[in-house]
């Protein structure tokens, strides 16, 4: 489903006139990532701060803040890097944000209605009727323990940290992606919320989709059991293994392994 070959990406080096970001110097963050993800699999990517985990997620989603300097990414046999941000999303790539942004005045309902319509259009499905859409939002909100009334609130505005993360998984459920990349979905969650989110994601696992979990800690993996665990350090995957690798990392720390 996803095939990453020798991916290099950097940040900075922005043109003059787009001030306010970076110091103008280009800095390489991903230094040759290789990863294969097949349908039905869950991969966990772990690693110390600054290793490039979130950059990998951003680059896959097409965040223009990062520049791919070389390498190849195939998503469902297509050249992912040639697609725009929204085309990737419509093809079924979902990014669960580490810091979901607030969008004042834009209701979750309007936002999700537009997003679901785009996804369904890409799948060749008809637009949902208002009542079908409402029924779907109720069902998916229940999955992550969000009150249905949140659909009339502005996107992430005034949401608690836990609600924001639940809202990411709610959106994932609404959009039924082929590949979900969840960037530190566990950060900022208390134990109960972690369980709800973890179980919610697990309920969305199917034979025909795949999940890439980016996390610092292995505790999320108690709820979403991965098939593979990779350690990212210095912009490369330095170690791969099964579920037990995560437990080893927890016991020994990254220093002992990387």
């Amino acid at each position: 489903m996803l095939s990453i070959k020798d991916l290099h990406a950097s940040v900075g080096g922005r043109e003059a006139g787009e001030a306010g970001r970076g110091d103008g110097a280009e800095r390489e963050i991903l230094r040759g990532i290789n990863l294969e993800v097949r349908a039905g699999e869950v991969h966990a990517i772990m690693g110390p701060n600054g290793s490039g985990k979130s950059t990998l997620a951003s680059v896959l989603a097409g965040n223009p803040r990062f520049k791919v300097t070389s390498g190849e990414v195939l998503f469902e046999e297509r050249d992912l890097l040639a697609l725009s941000v929204e085309e990737r999303a419509r093809e079924g790539l979902f990014l669960g944000f580490q810091y979901p942004v607030e969008i004042p005045g834009v209701t979750m309902a309007n936002f999700m209605k537009a997003a679901v319509a785009e996804r369904r259009k890409a799948l060749g499905l008809q637009t949902l009727t208002a009542s079908e859409f409402l029924a779907m939002t109720r069902e998916k909100a229940a999955l992550v323990g969000l009150a249905p009334a949140m659909i009339s609130r502005a996107v992430n505005e005034g949401f608690s940290g836990g609600e924001k993360k639940k809202n990411e998984i709610f959106q994932m459920a609404m959009l039924a992606p082929r590949l979900a990349v969840l960037d530190e979905t566990d950060s900022g969650l208390d134990i109960d919320a972690l369980r709800v989110v973890g179980e919610g994601v697990t309920a969305l696992r199917r034979k025909d989709n795949a999940i890439v979990l980016i996390t610092h800690y292995q505790r999320l993996l108690d709820y979403i059991v991965p098939d593979y665990v990779h350690v990212l350090a210095g912009g490369r995957i330095v170690l791969s293994g099964g579920r037990d690798l995560a437990l080893r990392l927890e016991a020994e720390g990254y220093d002992g392994i990387v």
């Binding site: 223009p64 725009s84 941000v85 929204e86 999303a89 004042p104 834009v106 936002f111 997003a115």
Partner: peptide, 23 residues
């Protein structure tokens, strides 16, 4: 970027954000 990552075109994303601002 957040809106586009959910499948909205850049134009629709701008319209939505501006609409929210003027709501």
């Amino acid at each position: 970027f957040y809106l586009q990552q959910r499948g909205l075109s850049g134009e629709d994303a701008v319209a939505l954000v501006v609409g929210g601002y003027a709501r």
